[in-house]
Amino acid sequence: QGDIVVALYPYDGIHPDDLSFKKGEKMKVLEEHGEWWKAKSLLTKKEGFIPSNYVAKLN
């Protein structure tokens, strides 16, 4: 089961498979690959890669 993270900063995706998000948006982490994680937005239901240093895990 994936962790839920919250965006600390907004992110505008650079690549087509990036997931753009707004500050405060919550996402479910699907896979962790070093600095880039695959996640699904709980708001938009879209999936893509996010920079892990832009988010914090919720406990």
Rank of each mutant, 00 (worst) to 15 (best):
Q1W: 15
Q1I: 15
Q1A: 14
G2F: 11
G2C: 13
G2Q: 10
D3I: 15
D3N: 13
D3G: 11
D3Y: 15
I4R: 03
V5P: 00
V5Y: 13
V5E: 01
V5Q: 02
V5G: 02
V5L: 05
V6Y: 11
V6D: 01
V6L: 06
V6P: 00
V6T: 06
A7C: 05
L8I: 09
L8G: 02
L8Q: 05
Y9G: 05
Y9D: 03
Y9Q: 10
P10H: 12
P10L: 06
P10N: 15
Y11E: 00
Y11S: 02
Y11D: 00
D12C: 12
D12K: 14
G13Q: 07
I14V: 13
I14R: 12
I14G: 09
I14F: 09
H15K: 11
H15P: 10
P16L: 08
P16A: 10
P16C: 11
D17H: 12
D17I: 07
D17E: 13
D17Q: 13
D18N: 10
D18Y: 14
S20G: 06
S20A: 08
S20F: 05
F21A: 02
F21T: 00
K22E: 10
K22D: 08
K22C: 09
K22S: 10
K23C: 11
K23E: 07
G24D: 06
G24N: 06
G24I: 00
G24E: 04
G24K: 03
E25L: 01
E25Q: 03
K26T: 10
M27T: 00
M27P: 01
M27D: 01
K28L: 15
K28P: 00
K28I: 15
V29N: 00
V29D: 02
V29I: 14
V29S: 01
V29G: 00
E31L: 08
E31M: 08
E31R: 07
E31A: 11
E32K: 15
H33Q: 10
H33I: 10
H33Y: 12
H33L: 11
G34P: 05
G34V: 04
G34C: 07
G34Q: 05
E35P: 11
E35A: 13
E35C: 14
E35R: 11
W36Y: 11
W36Q: 08
W37M: 15
W37S: 07
W37D: 02
W37R: 06
W37N: 05
W37A: 07
K38Q: 07
K38V: 11
K38C: 12
K38W: 15
A39N: 01
A39E: 01
A39R: 00
A39S: 03
A39P: 00
K40M: 14
K40R: 14
K40P: 01
K40G: 04
S41N: 06
S41E: 03
S41M: 05
L42M: 09
L42G: 03
L42D: 03
L43E: 09
L43Y: 10
T44C: 04
T44V: 02
T44M: 02
T44K: 02
K45W: 11
K45Q: 14
K46T: 06
K46D: 07
K46H: 08
K46F: 06
E47R: 06
E47Q: 10
E47T: 14
E47V: 14
G48I: 02
G48R: 00
F49T: 06
F49W: 14
F49A: 04
F49Y: 13
I50A: 02
I50N: 01
I50G: 00
P51K: 05
P51C: 07
S52P: 12
S52C: 12
S52H: 09
N53K: 13
N53M: 10
N53H: 13
N53F: 09
N53A: 14
N53G: 13
N53V: 09
Y54I: 07
Y54R: 07
Y54T: 04
Y54H: 09
V55M: 05
V55I: 06
V55L: 04
V55T: 05
V55K: 02
A56Y: 13
A56D: 07
A56I: 15
A56M: 14
A56F: 12
K57M: 09
L58K: 06
L58G: 05
L58E: 08
L58V: 13
N59K: 11
N59H: 14
N59Q: 12
